[in-house]
Design a protein around this nucleic acid. Structure first.
Lengths: 264, 264
DNA sequence: CGAATGCTTGACTGCGGTCAAACGATGTGG
DNA sequence: CCACATCGTTTGACCGCAGTCAAGCATTCG
């Protein structure tokens, strides 16, 4: 129960470094040295209100940042007003790329709730330092041989791409019901990694019109689909909190096999 | 007319190095030195038949390759047999990443026609030489100051992501007619960059069921949409050759503003 | 010549969009 | 404290885009 409260209230017990560390270590455990380095990063959170544009599309020279609190998303608005959300950005995720720094973003990033971000400049510097530094012989491929920060970062960005592919599959080949089920499972898993899910329960700050833009549906149909999930007692969704009552049924509905083979 | 024949017959007049050079230089012109370096690469083509899996999903340690002939795609097959194509891989495109080498691919790559690929190992090595570390440039910012190979490569991968976002927009927010129009425009532009389009005319080796898997439609409806485009004299599509009779009307239908602001 | 493959067309159905109205919660000023 | 506005959710009625099923046609190939 304490877990539930802590997770739902926010992150009062989990600071930014801890969060980032969990996120980076979620693919392959970091070495103690790397963990210490990350933990020592000065992650000063900067708050933005809901609706703020955290990153404009096409603007070059932006420094990557970590999202440490709240939810954001990347989206595009068509000339006629239609809007499509590409992916959600959750706490621990990177805004901008560490491996391709300074490249202009392909899409705008917008805060969906009040958010806090922290510059990842120090982290990017770590990446540059981690590989060639004294200690490890230069020419040796430190990327492959041991789980390093650069590898964690690469895995992070690779997962980002995999999530985009999931999104394409949802939109192209799944029904509204399947899409919705799949989305809840995805977010559940991503939040759990950074300790923001308490069992089957987690915060769900998305409005139904936002879910519509994300799932490629109309608001009305999102509502109908949620009603169905509630009626079937598969999902509980009230007051900004989601409870997955029957994850197995959700998984069966979503039909997609567990995404990543953990990979190294 | 000669152009048309050359482009439609294949690439007898354009070797692999030339192709790759055009592709890399399509974002920002390469310096003479870089161009020379690329041109000196030993690109030995390796042929695979249509249907061959060029890259399996989830397998690590793969070396990046250039596609130098034919069309391929990245796709996923759902447990129940439904199939979704994520993007097309056209001549000059990279299979696998140069900036994140050895990472397992998030999706399988399959040849749609007979294809020829050439290892990009030499190119990746060039990258290592041009910019000391893959990732953050150590001290001297060769990335930002002048258009280098690494920048070209980053732009390449960035465009790849932008195309995925386009695909998401198509599937999530556009009608069948709009999706189809948008797709033809995208491919036209991409082929033109590497000299594989003769004016409004280019090869189109896709079957209608492949287009269905790409556009998230049924074969029947792809057919109906193509019929409509033909009836309206906007598109000509016969014998594996596409002609955009009225690109402006296509653009109006696709509704998406010209994608990239050229960016640097 | 028949078989296989891919394209085309028609008839029917249904998922999901649109329009419209009502409802509940929250907030705000008189 | 209430009247009222605003915002998000909910529900119903209706409709159309696109899927499914099924058959027929054109080409290519064995």
């Amino acid at each position: 129960m304490v877990d539930v409260v802590q997770c739902l209230v926010g992150m009062s017990d989990l600071d930014a470094s801890d969060l980032v560390l969990r996120r980076l270590g979620s693919f392959a455990p970091l070495s103690a040295l790397d963990a210490e380095r990350v933990f020592a990063l000065p992650l000063v959170p900067h708050a933005s209100p809901a609706g703020a544009e955290l990153c404009a599309a096409g603007v070059a020279g932006l420094r990557p940042r970590f999202l440490v609190q709240g939810w954001a998303c990347r989206l595009r608005v068509l000339p006629d007003g239609r809007c499509q959300i590409f992916n959600l950005v959750l706490p621990g995720d990177l805004i901008g790329s560490c491996l391709r720094p300074h490249q202009p973003a392909a899409a705008a990033t917008v805060a969906l709730t009040r958010v806090e971000t922290a510059s990842a400049a120090g982290f990017a510097a770590l990446l540059g330092a981690a590989a060639p530094q004294p200690g490890v012989p230069a020419a040796s491929p430190s990327l492959a041989s041991r789980p390093s920060l650069a590898a964690a970062c690469a895995a992070l960005e690779r997962q980002g791409e995999a999530l985009l592919l999931d999104q394409i599959t949802r939109l192209g080949r799944q029904s509204a019901y399947e899409r919705t089920a799949h989305l809840f499972l995805e977010i559940w898993g991503r939040l759990a990694v950074v300790g923001l899910a308490a069992g089957n329960t987690f915060r769900w700050p998305l409005r139904q019109d936002t879910m519509a833009d994300l799932l490629g549906l109309s608001v009305v149909h999102v509502n109908r689909t949620l009603q169905q999930l509630r009626r079937e007692r598969v999902l509980e969704l009230r007051a900004g909190v989601a409870v997955l009552l029957q994850p197995e049924r959700l998984r069966a509905a979503a039909d997609v096999p567990p995404p990543l083979p953990k990979a190294g």
